[in-house]
């Protein structure tokens, strides 16, 4: 880390260990007390991808599922690819810049 003289490697190591330890303790506390779970939803944070969620079709395509804003033909959304392409070119420029 570019912390200069103030943030030495030793201090940074200690800070890293403190942060990581705090986060792990908090995570264990959460798991031990079953925090964040919703009654009736038989899955948890460990479902990594949407198709891992039991009944994912009901969650995403059920009767109550919504569309966030107006619908457009799929070609309209290809405009977002232009944004992605611009980002890719920018990332490439960052990498080649010395």
């Amino acid at each position: 880390m570019s912390g200069g003289k103030f943030l030495t490697t030793r201090k940074l190591n200690i800070l890293s260990i403190l942060v990581l330890t705090s986060v792990i303790i908090a995570a264990i506390y959460i798991m031990r007390n079953n925090l964040g779970l919703i009654e009736g939803l038989d899955f948890g944070a460990g479902q990594y991808y949407y198709t891992d969620i039991p009944g994912w079709d009901k969650v995403f395509f059920g009767e109550k599922s919504i569309t966030l804003g107006t619908n457009h033909p799929i070609l309209f959304f290809s405009a977002f690819f232009l944004w992605g392409y611009a980002c890719f070119k920018f990332l490439s420029w960052i990498e080649t810049k010395k």
């Binding site: 964040g36 919703i38 948890g44 990594y48 891992d52 969620i53 969650v59 995403f60 919504i66």
Partner: peptide, 26 residues
Amino acid sequence: DSTGAVVLAGEALGPLGGQVAALVKM
């Protein structure tokens, strides 16, 4: 990060929050 956690955290805000969270994650 994980989709399961998103759905649970969203549902903690109520049905609307849950739907929007799940949709954005998907």
